[in-house]
């Protein structure tokens, strides 16, 4: 049994989610895209907006409930074998946040339906828009946490997810064991995938002596990371 914890869960208002400008969305789309393609994009955007149900939530671990080591993190009863790149970024944290966000399962159903009907362009747009909303949901929860930290005079780290920076996705199982069942409507499959698919999980830290640093790719040993490719 994990110790009794307090969890915060939110229904996120669509107006609070901005499609991130720097994500893959802009890389896959072309500014000079023909007018009618832009119109189709706008049409799908509206459709996706109408069906997503953005949710976000986190559990806070207080001093004494976690410890950060050179290549692992002890949190509650779990040991995260996250790589140095993650532990180094979090090492000065006074509080550790374990978060999950999801936009629900409707968007992926829409993508499937459109693809099966041969509506490739709409299916593709729906998929990348829904993915971008999932990312902005993660940015939203990060902002909520960092705003609260700022009030207490604390700084907030970047967010890290199992699967990023060489940290094994399988460790999502540990992450989810720190949260109540079905948190934010998300379940973990046997192969450690989140269902609904359009979900993101991760951790971040806040603290008085935290220094927020961009992802420290310099100390990473992965040679197949996509950050170098995009």
């Amino acid at each position: 049994m994990q110790p009794q914890k307090q969890y915060n869960e939110f229904i996120v208002a669509l107006e609070d989610l901005k499609l991130p400008e720097s994500t893959f969305l802009t890389e896959l789309l072309d500014d000079s895209m023909a007018e009618h393609i832009q119109e189709e994009f706008a049409e799908v955007l509206n459709k996706v907006k109408g069906i997503i149900q953005p949710r976000a939530g986190y559990a806070v671990f207080h001093p004494g409930e976690f410890s950060i080591h050179d290549s692992y993190i002890l949190c509650g009863l779990e040991k995260f074998n996250s790589k140095k790149i993650v532990t180094r970024a979090l090492e000065r944290s006074d509080y550790l946040y374990v978060f999950v966000v999801s936009i629900g399962g409707e968007a992926e159903k829409l993508v499937k339906k459109l693809m099966a009907a041969g509506e490739y362009l709409h299916g593709y747009f729906a998929d990348i828009i829904a993915s971008a909303y999932t990312e902005s949901c993660a940015a939203w929860v990060e902002k909520i946490i960092s705003d609260r930290a700022a009030v207490a005079g604390e700084e907030c780290t970047m967010r890290y997810s199992p699967g990023y920076c060489g940290w094994d996705v399988e460790e999502q199982k540990k992450l989810f064991s720190l949260l109540p069942d079905g948190f934010c409507g998300v379940q973990l499959s046997k192969s450690a995938l989140m269902i609904p698919l359009k979900s993101i999980s991760g951790i971040l830290g806040t603290g008085k002596s935290v220094v927020r640093e961009e992802y420290q790719c310099g100390i990473c040993e992965m040679n197949d990371c996509l950050r170098y490719k995009v």
Partner: peptide, 14 residues
């Protein structure tokens, strides 16, 4: 060209 244009063609082919 970008992927959306290929998709528009694929729909026409369909």
């Amino acid at each position: 060209i970008f992927i959306p244009e290929v998709m528009i063609s694929a729909k026409a082919m369909n």
